[in-house]
Amino acid sequence: MSASTIERTARPRKSRTRSRNVNGRPALVISTLRPHQYDLRPACASLICPDCTTWVPITGIQARQQKLVPHDTGRAGKAAAVRCQGSNRLVDVDVAYEIWQQRLQDSGVETAARRPTTVLPKAFSPRTDQALRARAERTPAGRVADWNAVLPKVADVDVARRQVPAGHAPLDGSPVPMTTLHPQYPAC
């Protein structure tokens, strides 16, 4: 049986980073972050890097000294690999796992309490309520009668709109057409 013909694109790396390099910046204190910005589960202890806002594993979570894994900024395969300034930064884990879990649950409950569960209708003013009731009580015959009462006023406005105002006509340029133009296109 032959070996797999699929080529790997990335070099396999060690399961744990054992670099002795330490970032010169001050240690990142976990208690200053919000509970949803870090994860203290032993299997995948990680946090959001404040510099590049990506999730980065924390090495040595049960050791004496914890720090962020060296990581790059940008998206894999889409941007140039530039080392983040937060790489190898020391992390001060001063929150116990149980306290973090309780804070995370409390924040979820608090967020759910801020979101409304029912949509309440807007209260009507008495005038709006009266207009809505009158509209609901109107019949088609009543609407036709209202339209017939308005028609003479509409006709007067149309006649006034068609009249040319008195005054000087423009000296240069063609006169304004008073009829609607309907261009005719040749048949194809």
Rank of each mutant, 00 (worst) to 15 (best):
P175L: 09
P170H: 07
S4C: 15
P126I: 05
D172M: 12
R161N: 11
S46H: 10
R133Q: 13
A141Q: 10
D39I: 05
T54P: 00
G167C: 10
A43D: 14
T32Y: 06
V95Q: 07
R138V: 03
A155N: 02
A145E: 04
A149F: 10
A27D: 13
V95P: 07
A155L: 05
L90W: 06
G173Y: 08
Q37W: 06
A113D: 05
T53E: 15
A10R: 09
N21F: 15
A43K: 03
D94N: 15
R75L: 15
T17Y: 10
R64L: 02
Q163L: 13
S46P: 10
A145L: 07
D158M: 03
P152C: 03
L90N: 03
P12I: 08
H182Y: 12
P186L: 02
T111D: 14
W147C: 00
P121R: 04
D92L: 08
S107M: 12
S125C: 02
S107P: 00
E137Q: 13
P12F: 04
I30R: 00
A134S: 15
V144Y: 13
V176D: 08
V91A: 01
P140A: 02
I30Y: 01
V29Q: 02
V144W: 10
L151D: 08
S19K: 07
V69D: 15
S107Q: 13
A45C: 11
C52A: 05
N148T: 06
